[in-house]
Amino acid sequence: MQELDNDRLVWMFTQMLRIREFEERVKRTFEDHPGVIRGHTHLADGAEASIVGSLATMAPGDQLMATYRCHGYPIALGTDTKSIMAEIYGRKSGLCGGYGGSMHLVDPSRGFLGTSGIVGQGIPQATGAAWGAQLRGQGQVVLGFFGDGASKQGAFHESLNLASLWKLPIVYVMENNNYNVSTRSEQEDANAANGEPLSVKAAAYSMPGVTVDGGDPIAVYETVGAAADRARKGEGPTLVESKVYRLSAHGNIIAPPGVPLHYPEHEAITTFGNREEYEAALRGDPVPRFRARLVEQGALAPERADEIAQEVHEEMDAAVKFALDDPYPEPEAAARADFVYA
């Protein structure tokens, strides 16, 4: 694992800010440009530290797979935010040409092999990709991201057993935001109900299970990095539970065409009436927390932080403008046989 020098720390902060600003723009699109985003979006605000801390461990050739809450990963990997926003707006220059949308971002050129829109189903796919890495034998590692809810899917159990048995080079990163849409973990998970961390599940597969504060990018970097080093050495997989708080609702409201979409308040408030829980999470927001820490330790001058924020602001202005101006794909493109079959 590489030491995090100041440049790298600032890079991490910048990526966190880019993800946050991007997700803010997605959310604002519902107000500023009604009707432009269709279907369902899921935002990563609150999980930026976990995403960036994890991805900062990646070496060339490493790969990842994720869930439908997927905007953050390609942003940190360097995919053009214009093409990501255009995809979410369903436009022709979108990352997937408008075929996938918010839940199905893919950028294989950067190691992002894709997502599944179905809870837990990306876990075996990431495991298969790790088998591919093992077969190539070049020390590459796969990061498999999923949520706390996915750990009750059979796919989780089957995959972790196999990865442990075959010592596959994978780090399972469970982003535990404590909610399955609007169900709290202790309502659906026997370990959570017992007050235990979900990383204890790793014991059933004789693999290490670690819980880390997903709001602290350096802690995530160190934890995922140690697990990736272990995987790279051929010692097998690790389950990392990264505890995050999703700062938006699960997704925008689901409504029939014609009804304007928007983001409701977080389920802590709408379902459980617990505004204090949500406000406490806002007070612990990982993005300003990391900025303050870098400023305090002298890694980042406040003026530079403001400049970065301005640059990110302009980048996302451009992304939104590009996506709004980009044409829709020709309807006939839906019948492209070469996309149905390779």
Partner: peptide, 11 residues
């Protein structure tokens, strides 16, 4: 080793 085992055990 089948997924429904784990789903059942948790529930």
């Amino acid at each position: 080793q089948a997924g429904h085992f784990n789903e059942s055990i948790n529930l």
